[in-house]
Simulated assay, not measured.
Amino acid sequence: MNDIDAWVWWLVAAVALGIPLVVTAMPEFGMLAVGAVAAAAASGVGAGTVAQVLVFVAVSVALIAVVRPIAARHRAQRPQLATGIDALKGRQAVVTERVDGAGGRIKLAGEVWSARALDTARAYEVGQQVDVVDIEGATAIVI
Rank of each mutant, 00 (worst) to 15 (best):
M1I: 06
D5V: 11
A6T: 13
W7E: 13
V8L: 15
V8T: 14
A14S: 07
V15L: 15
G18E: 01
I19C: 09
I19R: 06
P20D: 08
L21C: 12
L21Q: 15
V22S: 14
T24Q: 05
T24F: 13
M26C: 15
P27H: 12
E28I: 12
G30R: 14
M31L: 15
M31N: 06
A33S: 14
V34Q: 01
G35Y: 02
A36L: 09
A40E: 10
A41I: 03
S43Q: 08
S43L: 11
V45L: 11
V50G: 07
A51P: 03
Q52V: 09
V55Q: 01
F56S: 11
V57D: 01
A58D: 12
A58I: 03
V59L: 12
V59W: 15
V59S: 14
S60Q: 07
L63W: 00
I64W: 08
A65Y: 08
V66K: 07
V67I: 08
V67K: 00
V67R: 10
P69D: 10
I70C: 07
I70S: 00
I70D: 01
R73T: 13
R78N: 13
Q80R: 08
T83M: 10
T83P: 04
G84T: 03
I85T: 14
I85V: 14
A87P: 00
A87I: 04
K89S: 07
G90E: 04
R91V: 05
R91M: 10
A93E: 00
V94P: 02
V95C: 03
R98Q: 06
V99Y: 01
V99I: 06
D100E: 06
G103W: 06
G103T: 04
G104W: 07
I106R: 04
L108I: 03
A109H: 09
E111H: 09
W113F: 00
S114Q: 04
S114R: 09
A115S: 04
A117E: 00
L118H: 09
L118C: 07
D119W: 04
T120Y: 07
A121E: 15
A121I: 04
A123M: 11
E125L: 08
E125R: 14
Q128V: 02
Q129T: 13
E136V: 11
G137A: 06
A138D: 01
A138Q: 09
I141K: 02
V142R: 01
I143Y: 04
